[in-house]
Design a protein around this nucleic acid. Structure first.
Length: 595
RNA sequence: GCCGAGAUAGCUCAACUGGUAGAGCAAUCGCUUCGUAAGCGAUAGGUUGUGGGUUCGAGUCCCAUUCUCGGCUCCA
């Protein structure tokens, strides 16, 4: 076992070295083909590597095969990688003489007196701390994938360089397997399946990032809301409804305006007053809390709403349903005393875990985002003590609750630390699916109080939580998670009834009617196509249950089932089928009854 | 927002270097009545995202614009 791990680690290390060395070969090839190029950085990344270049010529996709060819030529030359060390000042002069201003900037950031290492192979050299493979002949399977713009050192204030992305593996087989797997993943892309299954669409006249939910998507939304409402009712939440607009003064009070004005739709002028369309529900809920006096006996107040918000995301950030400009949020705010905090926060975390079980979500990371002291007063409200104490409170709750998490500094909300649930889309983009935040700042700004047992007015803590995120992102995620094969309760169409010949049509229609009367979402196909065609159509629609009836079923008074996936079940009584399906849907089972 | 690429029938895609837009599926209408992933035929469907320009002639070349995609930045 230990040896396996060692072997694994050695392999990892080699692949990393190989990818990084390939980045140097890429840079060398580009330097030969495009004189005058300046170099940014070229690290190994997951599945491959990239290199950033500053160059007048704009790379086009046609350049990639030429560069690949040159790289293979370099690999065939088995150029040795050699490490050369220079004192900092000398290295600075060396790169400055060559006009490599990006490298000069990197060296300038290294501490005075450091020894700078340069790796040379053939005619190429690069500022680099290594390590590398011995020679370019050791390099194996790679493929240049795409050209992208990327800001120097990741800041939009810096110039934009041209980045070439590549994938690389130890063997051609592994590379082919990776490419194949990417192809498979693209098939479950929510944008593709969402169109095929008629879940959502976009329209030029509606606007970018503003999805239209088609009837099938609307059913999914309603099922999710039903789940949320049941869960929240059982957990002691009350429900509220708030308008989509409010005056500017609300966001001045909440303190959102200086932080978020840029990601809000511009204000509209109404009767000389500025109004905004709401980008979040919190301030509205705070106002409801503040609408009457509250006693410590009333706390915790757990206030839920599926609130619709609008955010002006930058055009380039929009991505299918995962990143949109209009969203319906599974929002709630819990106002509690510091004593109640731990229990409330843990209950919220448990609600998350309960949901994940329902959906079978297993690949996620709980990301605990904390503040960074240098951001106080800018990115974060300036109250170091409260930051410290709240973060300790959250961390303790997570640890004592046995909830695994990863702590990331400098990612908090402006009003407090948060926990985001990170998931990945099939094409590898990372998203916060759900969020859970502590707010120790905004309730005070709204002068929210409760009368404590000692007769004094105190400010409650507020927990913001959205375990089901937004319908948009959550359904986008679920489409990919299930590849469109939704569990029964979420399936827009649950049963497709089909007749084999005209003779059995009336019998089939009767079954459809009974299914519908039992509250199941059923439809029929009684056309004159062959049963093969009907089965195919229902399969393409990913319908969980097909009911196929012909003369045999008519005579026996039964139904024949075909499950999504192809399994057939004969001689089922309709009453039993209906009962099983009702149960399967009501209990939101992940696994079908007849599997 | 920035860099790059793209947009052709409802969907998936074709149309060599500029020369009268085409296929499959879906739809509609017939025929077919069939036992578990595509029965056969016919019909209809387009100002090639939009607006300008070059040209005898533009889906194809140029400019602008909208939207989408791949990244970067961002993500309450």
């Amino acid at each position: 076992m230990a040896d396996d791990n060692k072997e694994e680690a050695a392999k990892e290390e080699f692949i990393h070295k190989m990818r990084h060395s390939l980045a140097h070969v890429l840079a060398e090839a580009v330097a030969e083909l495009f004189p005058g190029v300046k170099f940014g950085i070229g690290p190994a990344i997951e599945n491959g590597f990239y290199y950033d270049f500053a160059l007048e010529h704009h790379f086009t996709p046609e350049d990639l095969p030429k560069i690949e060819k040159k790289m293979k030529h370099i690999m065939a030359q088995t150029q040795k990688f050699e490490r050369v060390e220079l004192p900092r000042a000398e290295a600075l002069k060396h790169f400055a003489d060559k006009g490599e201003n990006f490298k000069v900037e990197l060296i300038n950031d290294l501490p005075e007196g450091s020894v700078i290492s340069i790796y040379k192979n053939g005619p190429f050299e690069d500022l680099c701390k290594g390590p590398h493979v011995e020679h370019t002949g050791k390099l194996k399977a790679f493929k240049l994938m795409s050209i992208a713009g990327a800001y120097w050192r990741g800041s939009e204030k810096n110039p934009m360089l041209q980045r070439i992305y590549a994938v690389a593996f130890e063997t051609q087989d592994e590379l082919n397997a990776y490419l194949k797997q990417q192809e498979e993943a693209a098939k479950r892309d929510h944008r593709k399946i969402g169109k095929q299954l008629e879940i959502f669409t976009f329209d030029d006249d509606i606007g970018p990032g503003l999805p239209l939910w088609l009837p099938n998507g609307a059913i999914m939304i309603e099922e999710l809301e039903k789940l949320a409402k049941e869960t929240e009712a059982a957990a002691g939440y009350v429900r509220v409804k708030t308008p989509h607009l409010c005056k500017e003064t609300l966001y001045q009070k909440s303190g959102h305006l200086p932080y978020y004005a840029e990601s809000m739709f511009p204000a509209m002028d109404i009767d000389g007053q500025k109004y905004y369309i709401k980008p979040m529900n919190c301030p509205h809920h705070h106002k409801i809390y503040g609408s009457k006096p509250r006693s410590y006996r009333d706390l915790p107040v757990r206030m839920a709403e599926y609130g619709t918000c609008y955010r002006y995301e930058q055009s380039g950030e929009l991505f299918g349903l995962m990143r949109v400009r209009s969203m319906q949020m599974n929002d709630a705010h819990i106002y509690c005393t510091p004593e109640q905090f731990q229990e409330e926060f843990l209950a919220v975390c448990r609600m998350y875990l309960g949901y994940f079980k329902i959906f079978g979500i297993e690949k996620y990371v709980m990301r605990f985002s904390t503040h960074a002291p240098e951001g106080l007063g800018k990115k974060y409200v300036d109250n170091p003590e409260l930051w410290a104490s709240t973060e300790i409170m959250v961390r303790d709750t997570l640890v004592s609750g046995g909830i695994p998490f990863k702590e990331i500094p400098n990612e908090a909300a402006f009003y407090g630390p948060k926990i985001d649930v990170q998931v990945w889309s099939v094409i590898g983009k990372e998203f916060s699916l759900a969020t859970n935040q502590v707010d120790f700042a905004v309730p005070a700004r709204f002068e929210l109080v409760y009368k404590d047992s000692d007769g004094k007015e105190k400010t409650p803590l507020c927990i913001h939580r959205a375990p089901l995120g937004t319908h948009e992102r959550f359904i986008g995620f679920l489409i990919e998670h299930f590849a469109g094969n939704f569990p029964l309760w979420l399936s827009p169409l649950q049963v497709k009834v089909m007749s084999i010949t005209e003779e059995s049509e009336a019998y089939a229609r009767g079954i459809e009617a009974k299914l519908k009367a039992a509250g199941l979402r059923a439809a029929g196909n009684y056309g004159s196509e062959t049963i093969n065609a009907k089965v195919r159509e229902a399969s393409v629609e990913k319908t969980p249950y097909m009911v196929v009836v012909g003369k045999k079923e008519m005579d026996a008074g039964t139904v024949t089932l075909r499950l999504r996936g192809g399994k057939q079940v004969f001689g089922v009584s309709l009453a039993e089928f209906i009962e099983n399906l009702r149960k399967e849907a009501a209990e939101r089972l992940l696994t079908g009854t007849y599997v």
